[in-house]
Nucleic acid binder design. Structure first.
Lengths: 226, 226
DNA sequence: CGCCTATTTGAAAACCGTCAAAGTATGTGG
DNA sequence: CCACATACTTTGACGGTTTTCAAATAGGCG
């Protein structure tokens, strides 16, 4: 991939909004491309973090094993998004694995190169702080959901979160929805079947289309206070 | 409180490890002290963030209301720790409330003052990035726990997390443990009673002492894979 | 067409939340 | 110093939600 193409990917990220084309090209020149087949792993839980990763194409999921052997999906990342950075900044082993959810490309930049670049471009640090703040907010919000809401509500919230990022068509299986909502696949199926009957979604194999965002939002906010 | 005392509090935080005494004093001079009675609120969910907060004494908890009217405790903060910063950096309303868990003091610095200080001290930005990365890691770890582990395991994990920060004596009621583990108070009581019978903890009203960290750790990691 | 994965459905059981009632420390005012 | 109010803790029973296990159906791709 030519440097200018890489620079264009990097430019998608709000982290680098403050950089001009020359600076983006300089950063792009530090990056290395890697292609991934569907289900191939980018890194594994427990690996030492050597790189900063940015999705260049396809979709990458970050997941953890539960003690009963299932998987829990922490997040999906789309082109332009950075992932695995928390471990890299802390210089501690990845607490989760990253896996290509479809045929994908990632750019990676050596940890030390990126930190040096940061030092030379302090505006970028603020972009990173803002990004991390956003992820922390979102993660804490999910925390409350997982801790205290019923399955139907959790699934509604997951669908809304995904669609705020991806639009009304969500390319996920029921198993993936279940692994994000922290429930069993069968339960996700039952809830989504209900949503379908109530006209809230439609779906085909591996794809869910949101038909009635308003109803979803009501569900996500929970029953009127009793 | 004299500036030098404030500077000493700020110096406790690893965020400011790179600052010398003069710089700490300069930052301290920007800060305002506020005293809080037990249960008094620092800010409320939905408020616009105007300040960065640092705990100067006592203990502050950050919590969210669940849709059924209970509370979920997102985190406790001890002297030297910053809180509410994610909302301030993003310039969006607080997604959670902050409440004094005991008679407390906080320092606060006007949002704009702190951001200006950051711009003048780029090394501090890296400290913030590292802190946010750590919180993100921990929050994601709890996410997996809440999504997929049983109550007994979740409570064991909460106790371990707390004791890694506070040592073996944990000044929390069973209700607070429940609100961190995402369970009912009665359930937390039953689980902790069991722990007591098994010699894993001892406790007095409002205080839990960890007696057998090893057993707790085994519980927290879940049953041997079956 | 045949295989593999995704989806569906049913039934039983486990886990946990809720409700109710009571016991026990702590502190306060008289 | 006692009596009482308050908050924390405990226990039991019941029921609802969700998981688990099993088996069957259906869509897509080679």
């Amino acid at each position: 991939m030519p440097v200018t193409d890489k620079a264009q990917i990097l430019g998608k990220s709000s982290i680098f909004a403050s950089l001009d084309n020359d600076e983006l090209n300089a950063l792009a020149a530090l990056s290395v491309e890697r292609k991934l087949r569907t289900d191939e792993f980018v890194f594994w839980e427990g690996d030492a973090p050597e790189w900063f990763y940015i999705v260049a194409g396809g979709r990458v999921k970050v997941l953890r094993q539960t003690s009963s052997g299932k998987e829990f999906i922490i997040a999906f990342f789309e082109p332009g998004e950075m992932f695995g950075e928390a471990a890299a900044f802390q210089n501690r082993p990845y607490p989760a694995s990253a896996q290509a959810a479809s045929a994908s490309k990632v750019l990676r930049i050596k940890k030390q190169d990126f930190v040096s670049f940061l030092a030379a471009h302090p505006e970028v640090a603020l972009g990173i702080i803002t990004m991390l703040s956003g992820r922390l907010r979102e993660t804490q919000s999910r925390l409350k959901d997982l801790a205290s809401e019923r399955v139907e509500q959790r699934i509604a919230t997951v669908l809304l979160m995904l669609s705020s990022k991806l639009g009304p068509t969500l390319p996920f299986t029921r198993q993936e929805i279940a692994e994000m909502a922290g429930t069993a696949t069968e339960t996700a199926i039952r809830v989504l079947s209900q949503f379908k009957e109530r006209g809230i979604i439609t779906s085909v194999r591996g794809r869910i289309m949101i038909a009635d965002q308003l109803k979803l939002r009501l569900l996500s906010e929970g029953p009127p206070i009793k």
